[in-house]
Amino acid sequence: MAMNIGVITHLANEGDCFAKMSDFGLNVCQLMCWDVSMATREIAENTVRHAGAAGVTISAFWGGLPQPQVWDFKEGPLTLGIVPVKYREERMKVLKKWADFAGWIGTRALVTHCGFIPENLTDPEYDGVVEAIREIASYCERLGIEFWLETGQETPVVLLRTIERVGMSNVGINLDPANLIMYGKGNPVDALDVIGKHVREVHIKDGMYPSNGDELGREVPVGQGKAHFPELIRRLREIGMDGNLIIEREIWGEQQTRDIQAAIAQLKGWLQ
């Protein structure tokens, strides 16, 4: 099965959010939302209707978590994902609501960042994180969907170890090569040697390695960073990954549109 090109689309307008897809000439998206108040049956039904009218397939749903969220190395471990005990219970409830929404719209998986999962498996907090991921994955399994961990705050071997210990077949990885680079956690091409068999979908996003020990590296337009997409796509094909390639550009406005269009053109060339 060929890898399809898609784009991140933000849930908005009560589910009427797919008009721009036709501007890009794409019919696959990963739907994203950070506002859990939108996780209702009514909005889900509207979303399905509008996606159908636009001829769009929603490949997965990316569920954001409540504040605080600090995307750096200083406060990130204390605020991101379901790792911080202080926020875990509330955020697990939010993820279950997003899982319900993902099930209602008939998509394949719920995706999120789990946070800075401890590198040391003997860390006293590690088992609790594993149990939390297993609980969310079990909830998703009952709904007939998968739970994908997006790369970012963890090294590839931590993701592998955690998936092994969770021990559920519906847990996979949403590979964001830029995140591996921007967090200094690994080379995405080499990471496939460790986690490749668990990769279900890929974000097409590019970035640079950190230049200091406190801040993430910069996101840059696709093809201008360290992701080396031609080689990454070659390796993805070698390992048999046939999931979608979802373009993500975390800026706003006309420049975002131009960068996404440029990424589409480059991807078409790399996939030939």
Rank of each mutant, 00 (worst) to 15 (best):
P221L: 12
I105E: 06
I58D: 05
L245P: 07
G64W: 15
P68L: 09
P156W: 10
E154A: 13
V222Y: 04
N120W: 02
I5L: 06
G253P: 07
D242R: 08
F116Q: 07
R41W: 09
F24L: 04
G207M: 03
F24T: 05
A263P: 09
T122R: 12
G152A: 04
V111C: 12
I233W: 06
H198S: 12
V48C: 15
A39H: 10
G167R: 09
G167V: 06
G253T: 07
M32F: 13
T47M: 10
F229N: 02
G64V: 11
E135M: 05
R234F: 05
P118H: 03
G15P: 06
G207K: 00
G196T: 10
P221Q: 07
E146R: 07
D214S: 09
G15T: 08
H50I: 04
C140A: 04
G52M: 08
K205L: 04
L245K: 06
N174H: 10
P156H: 09
I233M: 04
P230E: 04
R235S: 05
I173A: 02
G225F: 00
G184E: 09
R91M: 05
G217F: 00
R49H: 15
E201N: 15
L236V: 10
R234S: 14
S59A: 15
G81E: 04
G196Y: 12
T47K: 11
I163F: 10
E131A: 14
I260Y: 05
E250P: 00
G184H: 10
G172K: 07
I82A: 12
A39V: 02
T47D: 11
A39L: 02
G253V: 09
G196F: 07
V36W: 14
V94L: 06
Y209P: 09
V70H: 13
L271E: 12
E131D: 11
T40N: 08
G213N: 14
Q67Y: 11
G52W: 11
I173M: 06
L267T: 07
E238D: 09
L31H: 04
L180G: 02
N13V: 01
F101W: 03
T107N: 08
R249V: 09
C33H: 15
R258C: 01
F101D: 01
V222G: 02
V36I: 08
G63N: 01
E154T: 13
W71C: 07
G128M: 09
Q255R: 14
P210C: 03
V36K: 10
R200Y: 05
E141D: 06
L232I: 03
V158N: 04
L159H: 05
T257L: 08
I58C: 04
L236R: 08
A99N: 11
L78S: 14
L245E: 02
F101I: 04
D259Y: 12
N212R: 07
Q255P: 01
I247S: 01
